[in-house]
């Protein structure tokens, strides 16, 4: 039996590659830049507000800002606005923490129809799962490097 590799028709693939419509890179980058920037500015705005208004400091401050941004991301997802922002901005709305909230809330909403346990709860981390796994793994790795570096120097 042949496997997938045997079927490759390189001439056709090259032809398809050169003729297929391409993503408009400059436009996408510009949109991602300004929307992503605005999201970060909002975050920074909350930071100043909490820092100078409520006098929060350090971990407390960054924790609070994250919570507000996650809440806003989730709320906008629930209202059906965030996917429109994402459609326009691409990476600009995926990279900030609001994008992470969106990636957790959207499958939770979608799979609610299959019940709260096997649907909502089980499928909640379908998209965010890999981010958490590799995020935790890489933070452990970086921590180890930092620790070893601290012992040596």
């Amino acid at each position: 039996m042949k496997n997938s590799q045997n079927f490759i028709n390189q001439n056709y693939l090259t032809y398809v590659h050169y003729n297929s419509p391409k993503t408009k890179e400059k436009r996408s980058l510009l949109r991602a830049f300004w929307v992503g920037g605005v999201i970060c500015c909002i975050g920074q705005g909350f930071r100043y507000l909490l820092e100078f208004g409520l006098g929060l400091k350090g971990d407390e401050l960054s924790g609070f800002v994250s919570m507000i941004m996650i809440f806003l991301g989730s709320l906008l997802t629930g209202l059906g606005v965030y996917d429109r922002i994402g459609k326009y901005a691409g990476g600009g709305s995926i990279v900030p923490i609001t994008g992470f909230a969106n990636s957790v809330v959207s499958p939770a909403m979608e799979f609610k129809t299959e019940g709260y346990i096997y649907g909502l709860a089980a499928k909640m981390f379908v998209i965010a799962g890999p981010i958490i796994v590799f995020g935790v793994a890489s933070s452990v790795l970086v921590g180890l490097i930092y620790f070893v570096g601290y012992l040596i120097f």
């Binding site: 297929s20 059906g80 996917d83 709305s93 959207s106 979608e110």
Partner: peptide
């Protein structure tokens, strides 16, 4: 969409193809 791709509310762009 939910079977083959992503949840509806996920904010991602569609490629031109």
């Amino acid at each position: 969409e939910r079977q083959y791709r992503y949840p509806l509310e996920l904010g991602c762009t569609r490629p031109p193809l």
